[in-house]
């Protein structure tokens, strides 16, 4: 199994509060890894370490090692911009920019200095197709993205991340603000995308983790309690606590 991320002894503090405690974890390449656990267990904090979004929080302090493709990504001198280009992110609430659909998707490449209209058109079309949004919006890519439905907006955000041609897509509860039908579409999309991308997804839904992920990691109180193939975690968890959480006995 190829690992894209190798995390060793990762500790994260928000001021005095330790949010992540000594995490050791490998994230396999071209697989879907689901992070589950009760609210406040640190899974969202963890996923934000992978593209260094915690840098934006003044009080956050991170110790330990995050190796990305064999390179230490947690150093002061590591190029965060390059990391974020390769590690895209989709957030909990759909957050398209108040611009046209086209401009939303072209935003990332444009900030990297791409101006060629034909090339941008190509990137936008490809991203829309990959995000299964093309058929719905192909006639109105110049309309405001704010006019799309919630599910469409979330797929637009995925398309926006895909336009950067990343290697990894981080998804922080991407369906928690969506209705069941929109959720279904996003899950289908993830199943499609996992052929080409490494996906790390935080989810509160056990069924979702079971449906779409290859590996599942169970977080509790800032610690990584158990990780393994999704089938194993759901059928025969090693820890009683994992089983209790999965079966809904607490959470």
């Amino acid at each position: 199994m190829d690992s894209l991320f190798e995390i060793r002894n990762l500790n994260l503090y928000y001021g005095d509060f330790q949010a992540l405690i000594s995490i050791d974890m490998d994230i396999p390449k071209n697989k879907v890894t689901a992070l589950i656990g009760p609210s406040g267990c640190g899974k969202s904090t963890f996923i934000r370490c992978l593209n260094r979004m915690n840098d934006l929080i003044d009080v956050a302090r991170i110790e330990g090692s995050i190796m990305y493709q064999g390179e230490e990504a947690n150093g002061e001198d590591y190029n965060v911009i390059e990391l974020r280009k390769k590690v895209g992110m989709v957030f909990q609430n759909p957050n398209p920019f108040p611009m046209s659909i086209y401009d939303n998707i072209a935003y990332g490449p444009r900030q990297q200095g791409l101006k060629d209209k034909a090339k941008l058109d190509e990137i936008v079309d490809k991203a829309l197709k990959q995000a299964a949004l093309y058929d719905e919006v192909k006639d109105r890519v110049n309309d405001s993205a704010m006019g799309l439905s919630g599910g469409q907006q979330q797929r637009l955000c995925i398309a926006r991340a895909l336009a950067m041609e990343p290697e990894v897509i981080l998804m922080d509860e991407p369906t928690s603000a969506l209705d069941p039908i929109a959720t279904q579409k996003i899950e289908d999309l993830i199943n499609e995308l996992k052929k080409y991308y490494t996906i790390v997804i935080v989810t509160h839904s056990m069924q979702q983790a079971a449906r779409i992920s290859d590996y599942t990691a169970f977080f509790y109180m800032g610690e990584l309690r158990e990780i393994g193939e999704t089938d194993m975690i759901f059928k025969a968890p090693k820890l009683k606590q994992t089983e209790d959480y999965i079966t809904g006995r607490f959470g």
């Binding site: 979004m53 390059e82 974020r84 895209g88 992110m89 957030f91 957050n95 935003y107 900030q111 950067m164």
Partner: peptide
Amino acid sequence: SHRFASLALGA
């Protein structure tokens, strides 16, 4: 969230 989205895109 718009600031985060932009930063996460490598801007």
